[in-house]
Structure formats: structure tokens, C-alpha cells
Nucleic acid binder design. Sequence first.
DNA 1: TTGTATGCGTTATCAA
DNA 2: TTGATAACGCATACAA
Lengths: 340, 340
Amino acid sequence: MKAVVKPVSKLFEEPGQGVTIYHVAERAKVSPATVSRVLRGTQPVAPATEERVRKAVAELRFRPSRLGVALAERKHAANGIVFPDLSGPFYTEVVLGYEEMAAERGRSVLILSTRDRQDAAHAVLALADRVDGMVLFGRTVDDEVVREVAATGIPVVLLGRPEMPDVDLINTENEQSAYELTQHLLGHGHRRVVYLGDPNGSADAAGRWAGVSKALKEARRRRNIAVCGADEQAGHDTAAELLTGSNRPDALVCVNDEVALGAMLAAEELGVQVAVTGWDDIMAARYARPALTTVRQPMRELGAQAAAALEERITGTRTGLIHRVLPTEVLIRDSCGGHS
Amino acid sequence: MKAVVKPVSKLFEEPGQGVTIYHVAERAKVSPATVSRVLRGTQPVAPATEERVRKAVAELRFRPSRLGVALAERKHAANGIVFPDLSGPFYTEVVLGYEEMAAERGRSVLILSTRDRQDAAHAVLALADRVDGMVLFGRTVDDEVVREVAATGIPVVLLGRPEMPDVDLINTENEQSAYELTQHLLGHGHRRVVYLGDPNGSADAAGRWAGVSKALKEARRRRNIAVCGADEQAGHDTAAELLTGSNRPDALVCVNDEVALGAMLAAEELGVQVAVTGWDDIMAARYARPALTTVRQPMRELGAQAAAALEERITGTRTGLIHRVLPTEVLIRDSCGGHS
DNA sequence: TTGTATGCGTTATCAA
DNA sequence: TTGATAACGCATACAA
């Protein structure tokens, strides 16, 4: 008879492994139901019994299986968040704010970056059945997919997107800030203002263009726009082109800081003077010379609000639709010129 | 007899809701097992049968419950990643690389930011039983917790941490790059070099200090260190103090770009000249004037490698221990002086 | 090729 | 106060 001796080390190395509520129940000489009651504090249990159960739990290093719990409760205790790329501090901060708030509420966070994935819709739908609710952030998938997700039955909160019927939405203010920014430029004598961005690219870009446009119109200036990608390279190239043409702009209102910094670089290379403004107040904006005039958004707050809004839906605390617009702050620095 | 008529809209509004494999089976007149077989392609099914099943699936908009699948398969199909807060671009990029790789393998990613949370250990353990494996990134929790997680039975990969027995580890090169950087400074005539960082704060900070230290020792220079936090403010304040003292340093080797930029700011404020170097090559480093000399790490690659290493463990493809060190690249720009 | 029956690990209902 | 036991939704070994 070959005795299979399990080394003690092995025995204690992987505790909690495969230990189920039944093992605990057996050891404590109670039913699994009672173990559950003790652990969740859901029903009164005799002190002596509780004692035995806790002892068994500790000895066996029992940890309830999330899978079992989730299946029985029919909830994941997890939220999802979908974002375009996360490059750039903007998305990062929002995600962090979101995670922080979710964590406080005992929920895990599943992230999904859609990048340029062709199967983004598929991935989002897949995410939908791993969470109790999700935030759709920016231009990640189109409205059709949003509807599909909503049809899944889980709450959805939109972030930085165009409005949709019956879906909660949180945005930051765009038009007014862009309007003020443009007025500021005009007030300092800039005549030929061009907007660098793609209104069709995102709701934010569209809102900002609307504000710029409005200010220009009021000032009876030409409403110039150079459709442009949202990254540094695009900003550089677009600006380079604009600044070499004949009728050169003297101010560039850019859809974000990356574009603005790229544009400043181009201007520097060409040795031309031009006022530049960005959006987001990324770190590099403060270190650029001249320091970049920009607009600050409450990024972390944005994420936190989204998490809160989602939570309300999940718990059913709120039924009314939310459409919130968080305020932004225009930061006038040196890059917009006109200052001594 | 009151006929309860469900409005059509309601009927189609929430499809897939509560539709189980049994409903599909019933509708297709097969057993649930067969439905499963069709959906997973795990066993041959007669074409006609498959046809019926697929039709029923489509009509009912059936989506298998992740919870059910996970419980039956006893795996989550999800990975975790834990990181400190340091919302610099470094962590972000790594997380993205990780998510991308994980997504390719059909796994979701749960994130956990430990920040200053006191219950970080608890949160990490909680995360552990929602995933099939996880990456522990940087100074998030101490070794004891790592062991606890490992004891849980799920694979763990360490990232940017000190070595631990029996745990996979991926780091980026620190010492050699720091050594080269310091030699470069010395070669350009800098005499009094001070390292700004906290070797006890992270493995990376320690490695970098080791390299700086080595170069200084070889050059028979004083090995000065100013223990300093890892953010902009800390860099600013520490540098401000150093640069107002009597025996002023002429070069500051900083643990990261944020600290370096803060230091440059302080120098600018004080109107003193000092060479400064950073680490990470964040965007602001390129826009600072003078542009910041720094060290670039393969951030996305770091995340991807971690995901790959984890996957190997989860699938059991690999049993041997990994201890990988990814190469970095020193980027000499203007902030280290000595260039015409 | 298909169906039956059981397991997965909890929670919760209903009795006792 | 406690114990059986039925969900929860799927996968799969075993039969047929």
C-alpha cells in the first residue's frame, strides 16, 4: 500500500483552493446556508454557531467564489468603461476618477479600449454581459451599438458624446468656453482665426467649433476651419500647411492641446508668429514656451460623476434622465499673444 | 378572463433578457446540450439541427450568460492589473499595452488603482478572485500581499518591482542607463551631481540611483542624493532647496520627468543654470525649454510582455520562471547642458 | 448525432 | 435559529 503523503508545505501553500462553502459547513457542523448567513450577516445566527463557522472559515481560508456569488445574486458587482484610446491624460484621468468612485461602492472596473478595432461593437457587447452597467466614453462606437447595449438591459451612461434619447449623458461645457476663447483672441487684435479640429470627429470637437464659429460670426469675421485629426502630428502638419499659404492665419484655435502643441512646433519651425490655443490643459501645455492658453476640464470629476450616475441607475435610485454639463475653465497663458 | 396582453414594443424592447439556453433548446426542439455544442462548436451537430438552433438563437437574441459559462468552465476569462496612482503617462501606456494584448486573447481586463488606499491589500485580494491571473505593477502592495495572492492559486506577474522568489518579473533596465546618463553629464564638465529620487520608494528609483552612484564613484565624485517624492511638486521643492544652498549642484539627475520638470521650473524661478535629466520621456519633456534629456522606456511593450507572460502561466504553456529586463534608450536633449 | 443528468459554488425560500 | 433544497445558467461526461 503506497501512502501518498502530501507534504505539509503543499498543504498550506495553496489554501482556499477549491474550498467551498460545503467544506466549511461540514467542518463547522452546520448547513451551507448557515455559513452563508454568517458571512453575509443576512440573518441572525446563534453566537456559538457563528463562532464555529468563523473558526472553520479561518482554518480553511475559505473565500466565497465570486462566480458562485455572482450567479446566485445574478449580478457582477462590476462596471465597465469603454474609451477610444486612452493616449493623452484626458481619458486616463477620467478613468481613474471612475475607478475610484466605483471602488468606493465595492465595484470592480472592466476597461475596454476600442482603438481602431474593427470588432469594437462586438467587444462592447461582450463587455456588456460581464458588468452591471457601463460608461461609453467618446467616439468609441456608434449610436446603433449604444442602443444594442441598452437593449441588453444594463444601464448605460454616455460621456463626451452627442445626446441620445433615453440615455444618461454627461459632458463638459464646450461652446461657451470656445466662444470666450475666441473673443479673447479677437479682442487682442487677431483677425484671421482658424479652428483646427474635426467637428464630425467628436461631439466635443463640434461643440468647440460651434463656439468659435459663433464668436467669429458676431465679429463679422470669416469662420475658417481646417479639418484636422486630434493628435500632435495632425496639428503640426495642418498648421504647417496653413502657415505657408498666402493668406496666413494669425490665430489657431485647436481642438486639444496635442494639436495645439503640434501647431506651435510647426510655427516655430517656420519662424512665424501665430497665436495658438488648446484644450485640456495637459502637463505639456504648461511647459511649452510660450505656455499654452487652454481650457481645463474637470476630468476626474467627470469620471466620478459618470460612476455615480451609473450607480444610481443600477440600484434604481434614480429613474429620471440625466443630462449634465460640467463647467470648464479658460486658462489664458502666453501662447495666445497680445500680452506684454 | 382577463387577457394580459404584452405590448409588442415591450416584447422587443428587451430581447435576450432572461433568455436562457433552455428557452433556445425548447424552441429549437433540441436539448440544451446541443445548443451549447452548436454555439461553442465543441462537437459535431447535424446541419439541419444546427440550422434550427441558430435560428432560435437569433430569434430569441440569446446571449449565453457569462456568469453561467464562467461558473461551468471555472474560469473568468479576465485578467487583472494593479497599479499605484501616479497618473503619469507611464502607467497609462503600460495598461494600454496590457489591455490590448489581453483583448487579443479574448480576455477582459479589470483595473485596480491602489492610490493611497489603506485597504489596498484587501482590494487586491478581492480582485484576485475575479480573474484568472493578475499583474502587480510597481509599489502597490508589499511582498506579503503578493504571496497571499499567489497562494490564491492564480498566476501573478510582477512589473517594475523588486525581485521575489518564484514569481515572474518584468522590469525595464535602470542601472546601466542611469550610469550612462551620469557619465554623459560628467563628460560635459558637470562636477556636482545630485540624484533626486527615493531609492526606497520603488525598485526603479533604487536601480537608477545605483547607476548614478556607480558612475559618480568611478569618477571619484561625491555621491549626492536628495531623497525626493516622485511628482512635479516634490521635484520643484527639492530643487529649490538645493539650488539656494551654498554648495549648489550643477546637475540634477531626476527619478522621472515630472520631478525633472519641477526642478527645471525651480531653477528658472531662481535664475540659476543647472543641468537636469529625467526619465520616461513624457510629452512635456519634449516641449520644455530647454528640452529635457531623459530615458525612454518601452511602455506599451512592457504591458504587452506582462500580458503575454501571464497568459503563458494561465494556459500552462510555460512553467519556468521569467525575469525579463526590457532595454531603455537614453535621449540626450538640451536640458543636460554642455551643448552648443 | 443527440439527450440525460450532474456539477459548478452560492443565495434564498420554505419548513422545521 | 437552523436545515433542506431549489434556483442561478451553462458545460460536459456518459448514455443512448
